[in-house]
Structure formats: structure tokens, C-alpha cells
Design a protein around this nucleic acid. Structure first.
Lengths: 133, 133
DNA sequence: ATAAATGCAAAGCATTTGCAACCAT
DNA sequence: ATGGTTGCAAATGCTTTGCATTTAT
């Protein structure tokens, strides 16, 4: 069940987690973040990582990306942008493609819903994996 | 590890599963499919559902949709189309928006990758959930 | 003071798998 | 015959949670 909190406190842990998230352009898993944060705070627990990743996502400071049924990846750069996902190695790359916010209006109008954001992802084989074959 | 199969056999189970998937425009979970298939084949196992859902996805007969870190949803209509996801109730709706395949070429060219497909999803609050508030 | 946040460890739970029996080709 | 497929159940493994303790405000 979702806890209801009246306010959110600043904590060293969340700060470090956000810094770690922002320090990379890869799209790390919770465990990768955990390993990184541990270098600076050897006692953090995985639970804290998950709780803060969730909080940061709700705060709009991070994005949770889900592909397939394994684990989630997180993105500390929350300004909308599109991704390319390699179906071979699972790598996620940011794309330069301009974001088309106008799409949100037309979709919102057509189904009468309030659109908060959209995601566009491309799937395929990255050139690194193609070279291996 | 992925099993390597020389060929794929036709089975009654897979046929029923695909029919169930195609019978709806909702985007069911593996468990929903399981319950439906059971009505016709009381002895199917959940494992078979999962294995076939995976096989069908690999065959290009179905799509696996992942939102958040809970469970996957499946779509038996594999021709590309876009979705609207309600962040309140989790409902997934098909959109009429025309599919822009041309995007794939420009992305493919810019990052030198081979694009197989793309996905575009809009998130927000559906009007059903908005009315409730 | 007071409630949010943490660490630890124990669940939770969707999905995967090993295996013997079974069945499509 | 051959090896893909199934049902069953046990095992995986990512993520969530309960609880006593710490800590931000």
C-alpha cells in the first residue's frame, strides 16, 4: 500500500542517489545504482535505493523505464527525450530526435483524456551488436 | 537461457491462447489469459501460458507491453499502433493516431542502427478516472 | 516532539525452469 | 523415432515491506 506522507524530508541518501543517477547517461538498474551509492555510503540498503528511486520518480526527478519482464531501468534526466533500445544487449541510448509535444494535444482531444507525458522508443540492433555477428 | 529450437510445433494450447489474445481489445495480463484459456482447457498450466506468450511474441504474433515494475500486458494485435495508458487505473487504450514509420529511417540513419520497430505511448488520466475525482 | 527515512531481513509475487510424461511431425 | 511441448511444482530474482531505530524539521 502506498504510504501517505505529509511532507518529504531531505536526506543524504536521496541526494547521493540522485547524483549517481545524474552522473550517467546510461540507464542504470536499481542494483547498479546501489553499487555506486555504496562506494560513498557503504551502509545503504537496497530497500532505501528502491524507496528513493520511487520517490524521485514521483517527484519528477527521474524516470522509470520498463522493457520486458525483468528489471526496471532508471533515468535521472527527466526532461522528455526519446530512446533507442537494443534488443540484443538491452542497452538504452538517448536520441536527438526533437520532442513533439503537439502530439499530446491531439491525442488528448481525441480521447478526452488529460495527457501528462508521452514516450517514444525505437527498438532494433545497435551497431555494436551488429558488428559481432 | 534461451532454448534453441529447430522448429516450432502447432499445439492446441498455443492456438487457444492466440485466439484469446485476439478476442479482446483490452491488453490482458498473463493471468487473465490463463483464466480465459482455462475455461476451454481446464488443465492448462500457467507455465504453458507464459511459455506461449513468449513464443508468440517472438513469432511476431503478439506484443509484450511493460509499464512499471509489476506485470506485463500482452497485445494480440501485433500490427503497430499507439497506446494511451491511464496512470490511475492502469488501463491501456488503442489510439487512432497514424503510425509514422518514417521516423524509423531517420533514427536508424542517425545512430547507425537497424530499427525493427518503435513504440509510442501517451500517459495521463483517462476521463473515466477523472470523473471519479 | 513528531513523523519521515533508514537498515536489515523477511516476505511478496510475477515469471521462469527442471523434469518426466506426452504428442506433433 | 525425435525432440518440441505440457503440467506440476519448485525455484528465481527483482521489488516491496514490517519493524525498531535514527534523523530531519
Amino acid at each position: 500500500m502506498a504510504e501517505k506522507k505529509g511532507f518529504i524530508r531531505k536526506t543524504k541518501q536521496r541526494e547521493v542517489i540522485l547524483n549517481v543517477l545524474r552522473s550517467t547517461r546510461t540507464h542504470p538498474t536499481a542494483d547498479w545504482v546501489y553499487q555506486e551509492v555504496r562506494k560513498e555510503m557503504p551502509n545503504v540498503s537496497l530497500g532505501t535505493i528502491y524507496r528513493n528511486l520511487k520517490t524521485l520518480t514521483e517527484m519528477g526527478e527521474a524516470l522509470e523505464l520498463s522493457y520486458g519482464s525483468t528489471y526496471s531501468r532508471f533515468d535521472g534526466h527527466a526532461d522528455n527525450h526519446y530512446h533507442f533500445v537494443c534488443e540484443e544487449c538491452g542497452d538504452v541510448t538517448d536520441l536527438e530526435l526533437p520532442v513533439q509535444d503537439s502530439l499530446e494535444n491531439s491525442v488528448g482531444d481525441s480521447i478526452g483524456a488529460e495527457i501528462t507525458h508521452h514516450r517514444l522508443e525505437f527498438y532494433g540492433i545497435c551497431n555494436h551488436c551488429r558488428a559481432k555477428k
